[in-house]
Design a protein around this nucleic acid. Structure first.
Lengths: 373, 373
DNA sequence: CTGAAAGCGCTTACAG
DNA sequence: CTGAAAGCGCTTACAG
């Protein structure tokens, strides 16, 4: 309970009849204080509710115990989950979060943002902006020049020039498509996210890989670009049916677009899943209440946020021990997603060994080595 | 671009051949610097990418230019919109955001949180936790003892013991219910949010007020408590129909529950809106793609976040001028919501003057005076 | 085990 | 218009 005027360490020291020094020792749990002295000081501290000024502490210690977090699109499902996990894990480690939201993930002012975070003396930066186009090029080039460690959340598999925690989006595409094929689908279409998003791109790669693994022809006409919204899913199904009336399975790269597909299917009299199997991604709270309940891919978003914090805390520790910014070890931790089968997709007749295997392997951690770009 | 080792103001001063003092003047745009001197210093600053250490600046100025934000439930629609707006508006004012997410809005450790924020020397606190039970009592009692100004976002109308920005939830309930009655409904049910949430409570008050204003009997059996989730909406409709088979209109206190109602209605063969009119709250992105598209109430969430920042910045300014924490002026700014009519509700035959009026009045600002509790 | 001194990187008066 | 001094509230060596 901190009320009224702020106390300083000197005032506490005076009240306890010791030096500021000694109060500092007690505050920092140093062993070299006489038990009675420590107790007396503790007493005063809890009586007065004194709490040390973290600005001053930060200045002397050269660390703020603050993590900079740069994020985008809290209105989306993924980013809000990741941020929530980051905050919780950071709090557990005693770090506060300084939040910067950006309006446009493709924007150029990356360095301005980083500068401002550094000026505020954050101990590390978690960069949780979806990878789009070349919006990470700057970061990759400059990372070793920055005064603080940086870690990325999300991003493209196999390009780990910056330490990062990502979800295996290729696997997501494969998981969904394998399932649809196993359910007997002849023509599996895909509604992707915006082509600029690497996550969307990678899911498409997974779709292709799955078709090829099953010896299917990859029909490019069955690829339609959506924008993550319900309406884009809706429109995409209409276009898809125009292009290929025999379409009998669809992988929508998020649940909102899948919802649009369900509506459109209903509108044109296609039964789900009898005539059309549908799989989404995200497992939003509503997904199990769609009509029919949606088969979807559940991503370990919370885990990725937690891991990002754990990693950055490690990096911070290393930098401090080395007494200088340590070179970034460019490794990527890749997390696996898992399929959740509901009623929007035709059941798999034989036990689907691939899907089962992937399910077991969910939340598995893979570290990729760096490789030159 | 801040790379490598950090510069200090002394180094910049040395490079420019002036005192640290003068560099400080340039940094703070003070008028009393010779133009050529200023220019030379500026030059060095941009060449080196020097940025002053905000911790040090904060320590000397007694202000951090950081706003503490305490929020809950980023997974929900409202909170994430409010937070986004807060961040943007704060950035515009040159404030950084220190984010604290809480797990349980009813939790008791309010003062621990506030203390930690104060220890970090935030200049003000935005408290964006939904009002539940007595979770604001502590704040209301202690607000004038805190070393920094606090402002609440959300909360109950008519109990403005702490400065707050809120949305008129009574009006929301009235707006929805008026619309349903005007559409010819005989029996208007309500699915509320959890009874502990004041927002839910207030919407229920609005429902009652509307019924009474129309000379209708208030049937308490038509009140069912939901938990904001789709499934609770679904189950609630079944229970509602059991209780009152003639039910022909339903106000679901958020869009997710309204979605559940739509599904349940479909399942039991009730046509929407012919047999059952449905209105939700929030206007989530999916609402216009529900089947049928959902009539709902749109809240000015972004506005409330922006206003909160503007107000807290004012309060900070006042406190600084007074050179001490200023007593909180307990006034509440109440924002109006607006109805969005779509196809889930039966059309209003005569022009609905009430709804129209409310629409015009949307986003209107009302300041209530304090009154003793 | 404890304290006096110096310093973290700035800014605020105070001189000139 | 400019600089030397003092101080913001802590902690880090350094003595004792």
């Amino acid at each position: 309970m901190s009320r009224g005027k702020r106390l300083t360490i000197r005032e506490v020291a005076a009240a306890a009849g010791v030096s500021a020094q000694t109060v500092s020792r007690v505050l920092n749990n140093r062993p070299d204080v006489a038990p009675e002295t420590a107790q007396r000081v503790q007493q005063i501290i809890s009586e007065t509710g004194y709490a040390p000024n973290m600005l001053a502490r930060g200045l002397t210690q050269g660390r703020s115990h603050v993590l900079g977090v740069v994020a985008y699109g809290l209105d989306y499902f993924g980013p809000s989950r990741v941020l929530t996990a980051i905050e919780r894990q950071a709090a557990e480690f005693g770090y506060a979060i300084m939040l910067n939201l950006i309006l446009d993930p493709a924007m150029g002012d990356v360095d301005g943002l980083i500068d401002s975070l550094c000026a505020r003396q954050v101990d590390g930066i978690i960069w949780a902006i979806p990878e789009m186009g070349a919006n990470r090029a700057w970061l990759a080039n400059w990372i070793n020049e920055l005064p603080v460690p940086v870690i990325l959340v999300g991003g493209m598999e196999g390009r780990p020039d910056v330490p990062s925690i990502a979800i295996d989006n290729v696997q997501i595409g494969r998981l969904a498509t394998d399932h649809l094929i196993s359910g007997g689908a002849k023509h599996v279409g895909i509604i992707t996210g915006p082509a600029t998003w690497w996550e969307a791109e990678q899911r498409l790669v997974g779709w292709r890989a799955s078709l090829q693994a099953h010896g299917r022809e990859v029909e490019e006409s069955l690829v339609i670009e959506g924008d993550w919204s319900v309406s884009s899913g809706e429109e995409s199904l209409y276009r898809m049916v125009d292009r290929c009336p025999e379409i009998d399975a669809l992988f929508a790269c998020n649940d909102q677009m899948a919802l649009g597909v369900l509506h459109a299917a209903h509108a044109i009299g296609k039964r789900v899943p009898e005539d059309l199997s549908v799989v989404g991604v995200d497992n939003i709270a509503e997904a199990s209440h769609f009509w029919p309940p949606l088969t979807t891919v559940d991503q370990p978003l919370g885990n990725s946020g937690e891991l990002a914090v754990k990693e950055i805390v490690q990096l911070i520790k290393k930098s401090r021990q080395a007494r200088r910014p340590v070179d970034a070890v460019p490794e990527m931790t890749l997390l696996k997603a898992r399929l959740i089968v509901r009623e929007s997709s035709r059941p798999v007749p034989a036990p689907d060994s691939r899907a089962a295997e992937s399910n077991e392997a969910s939340f598995q951690r893979t570290v990729l080595e760096a490789r030159p770009i």
